[in-house]
Design a protein around this nucleic acid. Structure first.
Lengths: 342, 342
DNA sequence: CCCATGGTTATGAACGTTCAAATTGCGTCC
DNA sequence: GGACGCAATTTGAACGTTCATAACCATGGG
C-alpha cells in the first residue's frame, strides 16, 4: 500500500520545508529550478515531498504568476436540429492541444440577458481566463470586435471580415467545394448543381464561391439555375433539390454546403426513385459522423479539425507567452473523402 | 462613449480604495456585504469602481476562499466511428447548470502515459478543480474507485456497480427498452428482436434486461433466438440483424441498444427489400441527432440529458457547499420518441 | 462627565506560492 | 590570514483578495 496518508487537508511548501529542514524557497526551487539546489538537499526535499504527497496549489502559483493557464471557450448554443460539426470532435482536439502547451479549457455560457461578447469580456476582466478560442464566427462577429478592441488575446476558428487586426484560423471552404466540383467533373458530370444556405453566412458564401470557381476551372457554365438555397435542415434541402431536379436541364450531380443538406438531397432522390450515384451524384460538406452511415455512404469534404484545433491553440499560447504573433489569418485546406454517393 | 479607459493593467481594490478615500476592506464590503456600508460611502466607492472599471481578480478571491469554483470533466476520447450521444448536448447542459450555481466547467484529457483516474487525482491534488463530473462509466470504473477512495467530490453520470458510497445519476435504460417493447407490442408485434452490444457493458446489459422485462410484461416468450449482439457499428449491426431475419420465425420488429445499431438494421432491411415499418419495425436508443433524419425517421428512446446535467451539477455543488448529500443514486426515466420506423 | 452601545471604517494577517535581494558557507588566490 | 568569488540557502515582500479584530465616532443614559 502507498504511504500517502491524506490526513484531511493538503500539505504546503511550509510543511515540506519543515520536514526537510530547509526553507520554503528551497522546496520551491527543487520543483522549479532543481539545478540551483545541491544534490543531497534535493533528495532530502524530494523525500519529504513524497512522504507528504505534496502538490503545489494551482491557484496560489497562478496568482503569483499572474496567469490562469486557462483558455475560454463558449460552448455554442445547441442547434436544435442537425448535427453540430464542430463540438463533437473539435473540443477534444482543442483540449489535447491546450494540454500540450500547459493550458486547460474552460467552458462557459453567457448569463441570461448577457451577450456572448459581454460574457467573454467579463471572464477576461476578472482574469478567469488568459485568452479565448472562438468558433462559428460570421460576418462582423460582435465577439471578435469586442475582444479585438479591448486587446484581449483570442484566436478565432473562422473568418469575420472584420478589419481590426486579429488572429484567425479557418478551413478553406472555397478550396473544398472547388475540389469537390473537380472530382465530379472528373467523373464526367457537366451539369453540377449546388444547394447552399441562404445569403448572409460567410461560411456559406465561401463555399458557393468555391463552387463557382470549380465550375469555371472545369470549363463549365456558371448557370444560376443550378443553384438552390435552403436553411440547414433536410426538409428544406429536399425541397430545394426537388426544384433543381424538376428542370429540363436538371443537374446530374449536386454539391451541398453541408452534410445535413446532402442528406435532404439523398432523401429527395430516393423519393423520386433516382439511384445514387448512378442517376444523381451527391456530395456533402463537413464529413460529420453521419457521412459514413448514410445510404449510400456520403462523399464529403472533411474539415481537418485536429489541425485547426492545434493551430488555434498554438497561435493563442504563443501570443500569451509574449511571442509577437502576426495578427492575421491561416487557411487550411480540407480534403475530399470519396465514398459511394459520387 | 464609456468612461472605461483600460490603461493597460487592471485596477485592484487598493486603487479603488485610494480613489474613494476608504480602506480596501470597505471596497470589499461594498461588493460582498453592501448592508455593512453607509449609503454615502457606498455610492462614493461605487463611483470609483465604475470609473476604474474595477473587477475583482478571480484567482485572488478563490485562493482566499479555498475554492476554484471549477468542475472538472474529462472530454471522452473520440469514438472513431459513430455519433457520440453524450458530448454534443450534455456539455451544453452541464455548463449552463454549472453557471447557475456559480461554477465553470474545466475540460481536460490525461497526459500521455497517464490513466484517466490519475489525471483526475492530479487535478484534485493541485486544487485545480473542486470536483468532477464523470460520464460513460462502466463496470468497476477505475475513476470512480480512485475518486471515492480519496474522498474527492464527484458525481457520475452512469452506474458502475462499485459498492463504495458515491453519487451517481443515470438514465434508466431498462425502463427505456421496456417501454419500447411495450410500444411495439401495442402495435401488434409478437416476435420482437433485440440487437445489443457484446457482453461486458453495464449500459448494454441494462438495456437488454429492460427488453426481457418488457417481453415478460407483454406476455411474450423470452426466446434467445431473438437476441443478436454486435459492437457499436452499422456493419456489424447489419450482420446481426441479417442473422435474425434469416430465421424461419424471424422477428417483425427489432429493438436496438443504440441508434447506430438501429441504422445498421435499417440498412440491412433496405438491402433485403423490406419496407420499414411495414415489414420490419425498428427502434433505436439515445435519440441522437441523426434519428430524425434517417429514412424512415427513427423511433428512439430519448435520454433526458438536460435533466441529467442539471441533477449531476446540483448534487455536486450541494456537496461542495457542505450539504450532506446522500451518497447514492438517482434514476431518471427516458422517454420514447415515436417516429416513422415503428 | 464618563462610559457603554452599536454602527461604520480601518488594520493586520492570512490564503500558498515565487521573485528579488540578502545571507551563509567554503574553497581559493594573493 | 583576510578579502574575494561563487554556489547554496534563507528572508522579506508581493500577487489581490477577505477574515478577524481593532479603532473610530456619534449618541444616549447613568
Amino acid at each position: 500500500m502507498p504511504s500517502m496518508t491524506r490526513t484531511g487537508d493538503h500539505a504546503t511548501v511550509n510543511d515540506v520545508a519543515a520536514l526537510a529542514n530547509v526553507s520554503r524557497q528551497t522546496v520551491s526551487n527543487v520543483l522549479n529550478a532543481p539545478q540551483r539546489v545541491r544534490d543531497t538537499t534535493r533528495q532530502r526535499v524530494q523525500a519529504a515531498i513524497d512522504q507528504l504527497g505534496y502538490r503545489p496549489h494551482r491557484l496560489a502559483r497562478n496568482l503569483k504568476a499572474r496567469t490562469s493557464l486557462l483558455l475560454g471557450y463558449a460552448v455554442p448554443p445547441a442547434t436544435g436540429d442537425g448535427i453540430n460539426p464542430v463540438l463533437d470532435r473539435f473540443l477534444h482536439d482543442l483540449t489535447t492541444a491546450a494540454r500540450e502547451d500547459g493550458y486547460h479549457v474552460l467552458l462557459f455560457t453567457p448569463e441570461p440577458g448577457q451577450s456572448e461578447a459581454e460574457a467573454h469580456l467579463d471572464l477576461a476582466a476578472t482574469h478567469t481566463v488568459d485568452g479565448f478560442v472562438l468558433s462559428e464566427t460570421n460576418y462582423d462577429d460582435p465577439r471578435v470586435r469586442a475582444l479585438a478592441e479591448q486587446d484581449v488575446p483570442f484566436v478565432a476558428f473562422g473568418r469575420t471580415g472584420i478589419e481590426l487586426p486579429h488572429c484567425w484560423v479557418d478551413v478553406d471552404g472555397a478550396a473544398g467545394t472547388a475540389s469537390a466540383v473537380a472530382h465530379l467533373a472528373n467523373r464526367g458530370h457537366t451539369r453540377i448543381g449546388f444547394v447552399g444556405w441562404p445569403h448572409g453566412s460567410l461560411t456559406g458564401d465561401e463555399r458557393l464561391t468555391g463552387y463557382r470557381r470549380g465550375m469555371a476551372d472545369a470549363g463549365l457554365a456558371d448557370d444560376p439555375g443550378l443553384i438552390g438555397r435552403a436553411p440547414n435542415d433536410t426538409v428544406a434541402a429536399a425541397a430545394a433539390a426537388g426544384a433543381l431536379l424538376e428542370r429540363s436541364d436538371a443537374p446530374t450531380a449536386v454539391l451541398c454546403a453541408s452534410d445535413l443538406l446532402a442528406i435532404g438531397v439523398l432523401q429527395e432522390a430516393r423519393r423520386r426513385g433516382m439511384r445514387v450515384p448512378d442517376d444523381l451524384a451527391v456530395v456533402g460538406f463537413d464529413d460529420t459522423p453521419v457521412a459514413p452511415i448514410t445510404t449510400p455512404a456520403l462523399t464529403s469534404v472533411r474539415q481537418p479539425l485536429a489541425s485547426v484545433g492545434r493551430e488555434v491553440v498554438r497561435l493563442l499560447t504563443s501570443r500569451l507567452a509574449g511571442v509577437n504573433v502576426p495578427q492575421d489569418g491561416l487557411l487550411i485546406s480540407p480534403q475530399l473523402v470519396v465514398r459511394d454517393s459520387s
